[in-house]
Every structure is written in structure tokens, then in C-alpha cells.
Amino acid sequence: MHPISRSFIYFSIFLSFAIFSQSQEFIFPNQEQEDRFYLLTNEIRCPKCTSGSIASSNAPIAEDLKRKVYEQIIDGKTDLEIKNFITDRYGEFADYRPSFESWNILLWIGPGIFMLIFGFLFFREQK
């Protein structure tokens, strides 16, 4: 499913990002790289914005990071290498996909555990 941004009611905070500071052109030799670019920029959180990915922001830092992602895709870096490049500099905060490590495992499997326990209690409760 598309991780592209969207929103209900945009108020004042949005303004600062709505002003287009610069728009860059990213030309890719093939569609596969272009698709990867949009997937990655949608998963990287804009470090200076209140909320939203770098794909959905025109803040200067978001534009710079998009350029970095673009350059690294052209250089043939893998998605993992690009993500690591970003998180090394801006922390886990910049990655919208929490890693499947240590405490984060609880986040990822939490819903499954909840469903099993709740389902068990639900059917037992009503008996």
C-alpha cells in the first residue's frame, strides 16, 4: 500500500513547508531506480518537520536529503546502505520503519500477541 502522505486538516505549521523553497529534478536511467527512490523518500522522516516524510516536504533539509538519496541510488547503493547512511546521521528518528531489533520486536509482534490473548479471553469470557 502506498505510504504517500496525505492529511485531513492542514493548519499553520503546514505553511512553512508549503512554501516551495526549491524543487529538484531527479532523472533516473530506469524505472526500477525511480520506484526505489519514491519508496525510500517516503520512508525517511524529515528531521526538521513536525511530521511527514522527506517526499512530502519541501523544507531545505528534506530537499538535501532527497538529493543524497538520489545520488546514492545512482551510485548503486542498496536500500539498506542508504537507510543506514541516514540513520547514522539523523538517528532512528529519521526512519519510519522501526528496525526489527531488541525492544522494537515487541512493537512488531505486539498486535499478533494482542490478537491471540484477546481472542482467547473473548471466547472464554462469554462462556
Binding site: P47, K48, P60, I61, D64, L65, R67, K68, R89, Y90, G91
Partner: peptide, 13 residues
């Protein structure tokens, strides 16, 4: 000029 060193330092502005 294009902020490459700044990005390496985790600068946002």
C-alpha cells in the same frame, strides 16, 4: 556550498 559536510554531521539547518 551544498551542505554535504553538514549532512555528515547530522545538521538540519
Amino acid at each position: 556550498p551544498i551542505g554535504n559536510l553538514a549532512i555528515d554531521l547530522g545538521v538540519t539547518g
